[in-house]
Design a protein around this nucleic acid. Structure first.
Lengths: 193, 193
DNA sequence: TATTTTTCTTAACCTGCATCAACATAACCT
DNA sequence: AGGTTATGTTGATGCAGGTTAAGAAAAATA
């Protein structure tokens, strides 16, 4: 069960089997059915979770009740509201399963205990945040630089599996456009071919 | 000289005077005149720098030669291309002083040495990256959610000093709009008052 | 001070995407 | 299967901000 998880942690730093077992003890294995809220706006996010199986979205709801999706997470990804979790302050976001989902999660207290026990993990998590930062900056950058059509093309290249798993209007939201706009983009793309 | 710097590092983690002195030894104190490039696209970013004095921009240049400014840094801020620095890969960005600038900078090798010497600093830098992540996510979020006018209003509230130090067309670039658009926004705002 | 260069403003026109609305399909229930 | 709800498509219209261009104002330099 921990195989992919261990590999993910070991990406940047060597960890012995004993060390990994200590890590495992601080995580909880959880399963949630489809459409379960792991976080609602206004709550403090009290987990960082590694996805073993399933699919999760993190999103914002504006005054009109419209969703803006900031992140999709699937197998081998991490999900959390980093700002809310790290600063233990109320979140603006919702985090919700889109499929039956299985994950390994750690709460704030356990994460601190784990750091006390294995200071080496400060490095692991520093590198994880750095990677998250790089991914986010790239997303930010393409959002400014590229057209909606380009962003869609990059999306299907980068996350080909998600097209089948996620309704199209949510992909539109992730891309920062309306469902109608995405529908038209697809239409022009098939015409081009 | 190190006063603000020390305070910045101590924000999250207690560090003794001896520990701080070890840190200082791994940083270089540098001054650069206005319009100096600290990084050019294609190079690997080999520094993380803390600004003692001055003003720096980090930006991208597209095919048409137009700048897109991703970050302004002033006193008590950090500047680097985190993705390029951490992964030691070529950058897409330029980092350039906009005023005579004084900073404390560390290179990749020294940072790793410093971590070996004082593993405690893994935590300090993890927390710094986390904060950078939170700031970036907020910027990303408002970029999607808010109108250009709202973003401008937030900008002048958040960085009131920069209006005097940075030409307006560069602020427009930072906000993701053209200089003409920002000029119009300002005109409508004064009309509203 | 005069002159050049940089920055800012205003106006006319254009475009990508939003909005609104109507309908078409597909998925989900009983 | 038949009805309901969720999702996707297409068209008409609107608007925020882009583009182009020309001139004004301010700053840098001689």
């Amino acid at each position: 069960m921990f195989q992919a998880f261990d590999k993910n942690l070991r990406l940047h730093v060597d960890l012995s089997q004993q060390e990994l077992e200590i890590v495992h003890q601080h995580f909880q294995h959880k399963t949630y059915p489809k459409k379960t809220f792991l976080l609602k706006a206004g709550q403090v996010c009290n987990f960082e979770a590694y996805l073993l199986k399933g699919c999760i979205k993190r999103y914002y709801i504006d005054q009109n009740g419209d969703e803006t999706i900031l992140q999709f997470a699937v197998e081998d990804w991490w999900v959390s509201d980093i700002a809310s979790f790290c600063q233990q302050m109320p979140s603006r976001f919702y985090i919700e399963t889109m499929e039956d989902t299985e994950l390994l999660q750690i709460n704030y207290q356990n994460k601190e205990l784990l750091f006390k026990r294995l200071p080496k993990l400060e490095r692991v998590f520093r590198l994880l945040v750095q990677r998250a930062y790089a991914v986010l900056e790239n997303r930010f950058f393409t959002g400014i630089t590229d057209s909606a059509e380009d962003r869609y093309l990059q999306f299907i290249k980068k996350y080909p599996g998600l097209l089948q798993r996620v309704p199209q209007y949510q992909i539109a939201s992730y891309l920062g456009i309306t469902p109608e706009a995405l529908s038209r983009i697809k239409a022009t793309l098939t015409r081009k071919k």
